[in-house]
């Protein structure tokens, strides 16, 4: 076992196929099969949404698709559960403001 313990080392995962996604324009490394939330966590990013009422930062909470706290805007589509959504090369994640539908307002 490697001295520098890591989840990937623990399960013997291959990490050679890492690819890039972006969070608010800055590059983030993701592994194949990793969810968007996991890739962001691995980069030390814990919040990618601000709440509707208080404007407070939020990220993944329940981790299994039940709490909807991890809603993210991915490639322009708002309200996607980052903990379920697999990251794909080139995905652009942007911090979601409130309901994420500002463009619909009349």
């Amino acid at each position: 076992m490697a001295r520098d313990r890591s989840p990937a080392a623990l399960v013997g995962a291959a990490t050679d196929d890492a690819f890039e996604i972006t969070f608010d324009g800055r590059p983030v490394t993701a592994l194949p099969g990793q969810s968007v939330a996991a890739a962001l966590w691995a980069a030390g990013i814990l919040a990618w949404r601000s709440t509707r009422v208080g404007g407070r930062p939020r990220g993944a909470f329940c981790g299994i698709g039940q709490c909807y706290d991890c809603l993210a805007t991915v490639n322009g589509r708002p309200n996607r559960r980052a903990c379920l959504l697999p990251a794909r090369p080139g995905d652009a994640i942007t911090t979601q403001e409130g309901h994420g539908h500002a463009e619909l307002g009349v």
Partner: peptide
């Protein structure tokens, strides 16, 4: 629906 801005007045 999910929360939205004013879509229908």
């Amino acid at each position: 629906t999910e929360p939205l801005p004013r879509v229908v007045r």
